Simulated scan of single mutants.
Amino acid sequence: MRAFVFPGQGSQAVGMGAALAEASSHARAVFQEVDEALGQNLFRLMTDGPADDLTLTENAQPAIMANAIATLRVLEQEGGVRLSEKADFVAGHSLGEYTALCAAGAIDLATTARLLKLRGRAMQAAVPVGTGGMAALLGATIEQAEAIAAAAAEGEICTVANDNAPGQVVISGNAGAIERAAGLVKEHGVKRAMPLPVSAPFHCPLMQPAADAMEAALAEARIDAPFVPVFANVTAAPVTASDTIRRLLVEQVTGIVRWRESVLAMHAAGVTRFVELGGKVLVPMIKRITPDVDSISVVSMDEIEALLQKI
């Protein structure tokens, strides 16, 4: 069995998509459709920068999605690969869940782009800059991270945001609580806390204003049943019902990204090969979670051609 997975924020880089667009009209069509849906030249920002503007959450989220869907379109249109025939499951990390839903036919490309633009703006606006923070707890188990977050909270918000892989758990919350958590790692047997260069404390209760904005937007968006089950971040379980997808996307804004559990659940369901489209951030995590499975990242035309030989 095979799962196609899609990266989250942090996988953006100036130059992304340029070679793919030069090589394929199908990739160019994806970038053009996203530009038209957003009313901005996002593709030019992706290819030429500046990096600071591309890193803005409202730009990075639709850009990462567009790059992944362009990669998929090349596979489908030029390689003859049909996701409905080749994938048993799809999943994505945080914003990548929207990409997975788009790939599986639940949300059309233009709607996905607009939802992610709004999601990025709403997440950035939810908390004043400097109020919140995030940190990766290196060498921590999920249980250790939860204990550190609980001890550091002291009446503020401090929760686990991302359970990425063994030894890589991210916490999120008020800046003071994150700083206190960093001072507690040694006594909890954790190697160290690494502050993350993020503009807001994602995936924690401080994001509730963004969750409210997404609830309103998703209520108006057309969401169909995906033709491949999508593993949801907040449940680490497959979902196919449209109303459930809507609800879980809202919960995802403030909830934990249960990536480690999602990969383990897909593996337990029989997945023996993971294919990451549009990035190279998930495969290293997958190799740490399930070292016995085959996993491959696909970004360039050469990598697409290599995948076509194996799929």
Score class of each variant (00 low, 15 high):
1 M>C: 14
1 M>F: 14
3 A>E: 11
4 F>Q: 04
5 V>Y: 07
18 A>V: 08
22 E>Y: 10
24 S>D: 09
26 H>E: 15
29 A>D: 15
30 V>F: 11
34 V>F: 06
35 D>E: 12
36 E>Q: 15
36 E>A: 14
36 E>K: 14
38 L>V: 11
41 N>Q: 14
42 L>Y: 05
44 R>C: 11
47 T>N: 06
51 A>E: 09
53 D>S: 13
54 L>H: 02
57 T>D: 01
59 N>I: 13
59 N>Q: 07
60 A>Y: 08
60 A>C: 13
62 P>N: 10
71 T>S: 08
73 R>H: 15
73 R>G: 10
75 L>G: 00
75 L>C: 03
76 E>F: 04
78 E>R: 02
88 D>L: 04
90 V>D: 07
92 G>A: 05
93 H>Q: 09
94 S>M: 02
98 Y>C: 06
98 Y>S: 01
100 A>E: 01
105 G>D: 06
113 A>Q: 05
115 L>S: 09
118 L>W: 02
122 A>G: 03
123 M>Y: 00
129 V>D: 12
130 G>I: 08
130 G>L: 05
132 G>E: 00
132 G>R: 02
134 M>E: 02
137 L>H: 07
141 T>W: 12
142 I>L: 15
145 A>I: 01
146 E>I: 02
148 I>A: 10
149 A>N: 00
150 A>S: 07
151 A>P: 01
153 A>Y: 00
157 I>R: 04
157 I>H: 01
166 P>F: 10
166 P>M: 11
169 V>P: 04
170 V>C: 03
171 I>M: 08
171 I>K: 06
174 N>S: 10
185 V>D: 08
186 K>Y: 05
187 E>L: 01
189 G>A: 09
191 K>G: 03
191 K>E: 11
191 K>C: 06
200 A>Q: 02
209 P>W: 00
209 P>S: 09
209 P>E: 08
211 A>R: 04
212 D>E: 13
213 A>F: 06
217 A>C: 07
226 P>R: 08
231 F>G: 02
231 F>L: 10
234 V>P: 08
237 A>G: 09
242 S>N: 08
247 R>L: 14
249 L>S: 05
249 L>G: 00
253 V>M: 00
259 W>Y: 09
259 W>E: 03
259 W>Q: 03
260 R>G: 07
262 S>I: 01
263 V>I: 15
268 A>I: 02
273 R>V: 03
275 V>H: 04
283 V>W: 06
285 M>P: 08
290 T>M: 14
290 T>F: 07
291 P>S: 08
293 V>I: 14
293 V>S: 07
293 V>A: 04
296 I>K: 10
297 S>T: 09
298 V>M: 05
300 S>H: 03
300 S>G: 04
307 L>I: 00
308 L>C: 13
310 K>M: 15
311 I>R: 14
